[in-house]
Simulated scan of single mutants.
Amino acid sequence: MGIYGQDWASYQSATPDTTGLSFAFVKVSQGLTYTNPEWTTQRDHARAAGLVVGYYHYPEMANSAQQEADRFLSLAQPPNGELVCLDWEGYDSANESVDHAAQVAYKDAWLRYVKGRLPHNPVGLYCNTEYWQSIDTTGYFQDYLWIATDGLPAGQPGISANWLFHQYADSGGADQDYCHLGSTGELRSWAASFAPAPAPAPAPAGPPWPGEYLRLQSPMLHDDNVRTWQQRMNDRGWALTVDGWYGQQSDSICRQFQQEKGLTVDGIVGPASWAAAWADPVT
């Protein structure tokens, strides 16, 4: 059980082989100045292959977490249903002088800020077991943890935390990743679950037109449809006797109402005049 994916940066092909993959994470940015020149092509390639797409940022943790996050978000602009991740590691020259407490503070600040900006996307943390077990002090990874190990089988990262992704190998020039969910569809559904629920369809403004034209006629029309319309007009503030008879008073009120609402003034309660009786604004 489980599904497989990869993570791509500029040193991978712009169009990697996606055979057997369910997801791909694409590096978008690093620090405040670097942008992966291949990221949009890699993103489009992953989408075209039907993969679940994620985006990641590599930090330079002497900088402001918010400034780096703002730049990353201005580039990535992920739609609902796609993932965002912080690649939290600091083995390079830009991060080696940043003490571990500051690195942890950066991590927490970046994740919280990005989640505030993207409440409807999964926001998570990538790190290796050394960073997770020896440097992290808060256990905070927001929505998901992507853990990296070296030499352990896929799906066995060797930690007790509730991880979702496992980077388990480097093969064929690309990092190999595993997700413990059962299918591409399950991962896609999980990611989509962060999006807001669709707004319910508006309830009908009132009862449907009964299919009967209410009009002044001889013999005089008298039924419950007339009574329903009279009651509604009365509720709207029109001085109309509710008796079920469509007489001169009903005809007069209907014409006045039609004039006010810009309808055809004919004294006949057809579909438009009936619907207007239940529509806002109430007058």
Rank of each mutant, 00 (worst) to 15 (best):
P200W: 07
G5N: 15
A46K: 01
Q67P: 02
F165D: 14
A46R: 06
E82V: 03
G81E: 15
K107Y: 10
S13R: 04
H166A: 13
W209H: 07
K115D: 05
D143H: 05
A154D: 05
T184S: 12
I135H: 09
Q176R: 13
P202Y: 08
Y11D: 01
L73P: 13
R47H: 01
Q77C: 00
E96Y: 15
V242S: 02
M61C: 11
S64W: 06
D70V: 10
V265L: 10
L111D: 08
M61P: 10
Q66A: 15
T149K: 04
Y131V: 04
Y11A: 02
G182E: 14
A154F: 03
L187K: 02
Q248E: 11
S64G: 03
R43S: 11
G206I: 02
G90W: 07
A191E: 07
Y126E: 03
T33L: 14
W146N: 06
A48M: 00
Y213V: 11
G185R: 04
D87L: 01
Q66V: 12
D175Q: 02
D175A: 00
V104H: 02
G116Q: 08
S64N: 04
Q142R: 09
C179E: 00
C127R: 02
W190D: 15
A191S: 08
A197Y: 14
F257G: 03
L164I: 04
N95W: 00
T41Q: 07
I253S: 06
Y4F: 13
G2K: 10
S250K: 05
S218R: 11
W8P: 06
K261E: 11
N63T: 09
W229M: 03
A101N: 06
Y56G: 04
Q231D: 05
H180L: 10
Y131A: 00
V242W: 00
P157A: 01
Y55W: 12
P198G: 07
E60M: 07
V226C: 06
S29C: 09
G81M: 06
D136E: 08
L240G: 13
S134Y: 11
T40V: 12
D17F: 07
Y34N: 03
H100T: 12
H166M: 08
S74K: 10
A192V: 05
Y4H: 12
P198K: 06
C127H: 03
W190T: 15
Q66R: 12
R112V: 06
A201D: 12
T137P: 00
Y246L: 09
T138G: 02
P157S: 03
T241R: 05
Y106E: 05
V28P: 05
P153I: 02
G155A: 08
G155N: 13
A272L: 14
G206M: 00
H166C: 04
Q67K: 10
P200S: 01
V28R: 00
A272C: 11
Y55P: 11
A101H: 01
P207Q: 07
R232S: 03
A69F: 04
W8E: 08
A203Q: 15
Y131R: 03
V26H: 09
D44L: 04
D235H: 00
S64M: 06
Y126T: 07
G173A: 02
Q77M: 13
V114Y: 09
P198Q: 08
W278C: 03
Q256N: 15
G247V: 12
Y113W: 13
S93I: 05
K107F: 06
S13F: 00
V104E: 01
W245G: 09
P59V: 05
A109H: 09
W39E: 06
D7A: 00
V123L: 07
V226Q: 09
